[in-house]
């Protein structure tokens, strides 16, 4: 009987082509010859792993056995692998393998690389979440962002994902990683940080990814925020140190002139409501918030709300929202400003 290993390359390539991702992962473990053959195959000849979401995440506190995990989600179910820097181990389905001579951060990054090599269809979500590294006794985990950036750069192609979710513990980690998302596929960008971090957005707003995304969700406080850098988004949810009444007026005009915008939410540490009244006229007080209503097309009304909220014991902030509502939801007695006013 002919041995499958001795089959011509074209035949082996075809067999791989008809195998699914899990089979190919198993084939890599069968023997050295198969592993080498698969490693040397170009990405285009590998089957599509068809994952919906991929996450690489580090744990915040070191009370757990593992320091990070890698998850790939399919339509039905998911697979999660845990990595422990201290134990030098990887656990899959409760089965732990000790990798005595390996750098565990490298192992995790390599595993991610393998998964990304097989991913051809667009991901729904790609997440890289770094916790607070200060809680980790082992310094190896600190090298993860750099190693991840290097690996993504070497892939030589941008990752097609509709949502990119990034949690960082330092501003410098954002742009080098974000650059590896395919701007044409990217729809939603989510940024998180450990603690109350402030981020200067000058270099982030310059990326293609920022410019192409349709929605932005940003938890860290953004400094140097300019309205022209965000008004292309159809959905915004972000925090900033300060916005002006002029900024809100610019956004209102953008909203009224475009049919694409859906909802803007700002949380600002500072805001002067009086200035806004000077431009738009007095607000309508409703449900402990100040509202301004602007007529849009047909039965649609733009509802701008300012609400002062207490965040924690002594921190106040302003929540400023633009929302499109139905004409019939405007409370009685409220003035609806005409379409072309201002």
């Amino acid at each position: 009987m002919p041995s499958i290993i001795e089959m011509p390359e074209l035949v082996l390539e075809k067999i791989i082509e008809f195998s699914d991702f899990k089979s190919v992962l198993a084939l890599r473990e069968v023997c050295r010859d198969f592993r080498n053959f698969i490693e040397n195959l170009s990405d285009t000849k590998l089957p599509d792993s068809k994952f919906e979401a991929i996450t690489l995440c580090t744990f915040n506190k070191h009370r757990r056995k593992s320091d990070m995990f890698l998850t790939y989600e399919e339509e039905y179910g998911f697979r999660r692998q845990f990595y422990s820097v201290m134990e030098k181990s990887r656990s899959i389905n409760g089965k732990t393998t000790i990798l005595e001579n390996s750098n565990i951060v490298d192992v995790a990054v390599q595993d991610l690389e393998t998964v990304l090599k097989f991913q051809k269809s667009d991901l729904e979500c790609l997440s890289f979440h770094f916790g607070d590294f200060q809680h980790h006794n082992n310094s190896l985990i600190h090298t993860l962002p750099d190693k991840l950036t290097t690996m993504l750069g070497k892939l030589n192609r941008r990752i097609k994902t509709k949502e990119f979710s990034l949690k960082v513990n330092h501003q410098s980690q954002i742009v080098p990683i974000l650059r590896n998302a395919d701007p044409d596929t990217l729809e939603r960008l989510s940024l998180y940080s450990t603690g109350d971090m402030e981020i200067e957005i000058d270099d982030i707003v310059g990326t293609e990814q920022w410019k192409h995304a349709e929605s932005i969700h940003c938890e860290p406080y953004l400094t140097n925020l300019k309205m022209e850098d965000v008004c292309h988004f159809s959905r915004i949810s972000l925090k900033t140190n300060s916005v002006t009444a002029r900024d809100m007026d610019t956004l209102k005009k953008t909203f009224l002139s475009s049919s694409e915008l859906m909802r803007y939410e700002f949380e600002s540490r500072n805001f002067n409501e009086q200035e806004l009244s000077n431009i738009w006229g007095p607000a309508f007080g409703f449900e402990s918030a100040s509202h301004w209503y602007f007529q849009m097309k047909e039965w649609q009304v733009l509802d701008f709300v300012v609400r002062r909220e207490l965040m924690g014991r002594d921190r106040r902030c302003y929540c400023l929202n633009f929302d499109i509502i139905d004409m019939e939801d405007v409370p009685d007695g409220a003035v609806i400003h005409a379409y072309n006013e201002n």
Partner: peptide, 8 residues
């Protein structure tokens, strides 16, 4: 041939 080892 590929189907022979699917899920194995």
């Amino acid at each position: 041939v590929a189907m022979m080892v699917k899920g194995k």
